Amino acid sequence: MRFSTEAAITKLRPTTDNDTLGGRIWRARDALNLSAKDLANQLGVKVDTIAAWERDRSEPRTNRLFMLAGILGVPPVWLIAGIGDAPKDDLAEPATMRLRDQLAAVRKAHDETGKAISALELALTRVLQDIES
C-alpha cells in the first residue's frame, strides 16, 4: 500500500461547500424535511423572508444566522461559509420518520388550538360587549 501525501492533506483539510448561503439554508432545511413555514414559525419571521434568504435576495442578520444553524442542526461556519460537512439527508430511518410525523401532527394540533382559543376569546369579548350595552 502506497502512502499519498496529497491524500493525507486532503483528508485533513476541511471540505468546502461552494453553494451559496441561500442554497445551504435550503439544503439544510430540506435534509430535515422541514417546510419553509415551519422554519419561519420557529424563527419568528415571515415565510417570504425564508424564501428571500433561500433565493439569495437577502441575508439573515447575524443573530438569525446562529438561530438558523441551531434549528437546522448545522455548524454556523458551514451555514455561513460552507466550511465543513453538509447535513446528511438520509434521515429516512423508520423511527426518525415516525417521530417527525408525530412532531408535525403535534405542531398542527398546536396551531389549530391557538386558532380556536383566539376565536373563543373574540366570541367572549363580543358577548361581554353585548351584555354591557
Rank of each mutant, 00 (worst) to 15 (best):
M1T: 06
R2F: 12
S4R: 05
T5I: 11
E6H: 10
A8K: 06
A8M: 10
T10S: 07
L12M: 13
L12V: 06
R13D: 08
P14L: 05
T15V: 05
T15K: 04
T16Y: 02
T20L: 08
G22K: 05
G22S: 06
G23R: 08
R24M: 07
I25D: 09
W26R: 15
R27T: 08
A28R: 08
R29E: 03
R29G: 04
D30E: 13
A31Y: 00
L32M: 04
N33G: 09
L34V: 01
A36E: 14
A36D: 08
K37V: 05
K37G: 02
K37N: 05
D38W: 00
D38F: 03
L39V: 00
L39H: 05
A40N: 00
A40F: 07
N41E: 13
Q42V: 03
L43Q: 08
G44Y: 13
V45I: 07
V47L: 12
D48P: 06
T49R: 15
I50A: 01
I50T: 00
A51D: 11
E54F: 06
E54V: 02
R55V: 00
D56R: 00
S58H: 04
E59S: 08
P60H: 09
T62E: 12
N63E: 13
R64A: 11
L65E: 09
L65Y: 00
F66Q: 06
F66H: 15
A69N: 09
G70D: 15
G70R: 09
I71N: 04
I71A: 05
L72Q: 04
L72D: 03
V74N: 04
P75Q: 15
P76A: 14
I80D: 12
A81R: 10
A81M: 04
G82D: 11
G84C: 13
G84R: 01
A86P: 08
P87R: 10
K88E: 11
D89R: 02
D89C: 00
D89Q: 01
D89L: 01
D89V: 02
D90S: 09
D90P: 00
L91T: 13
L91I: 07
L91K: 07
P94F: 10
P94W: 10
P94D: 14
A95Y: 02
A95Q: 05
M97D: 02
M97S: 02
M97I: 08
R98F: 00
R98T: 01
L99W: 06
L99Q: 07
R100N: 10
Q102R: 08
L103A: 08
L103V: 01
A105F: 01
V106G: 02
R107V: 01
R107S: 10
H110T: 11
H110Q: 15
D111C: 09
D111N: 11
T113N: 14
G114E: 10
K115S: 12
K115E: 14
I117L: 15
I117S: 11
S118G: 12
A119L: 14
E121T: 03
L122F: 13
A123I: 04
A123G: 09
A123V: 06
R126P: 00
R126Q: 12
R126A: 13
V127E: 14
V127N: 09
V127G: 01
V127A: 12
L128F: 09
Q129W: 03
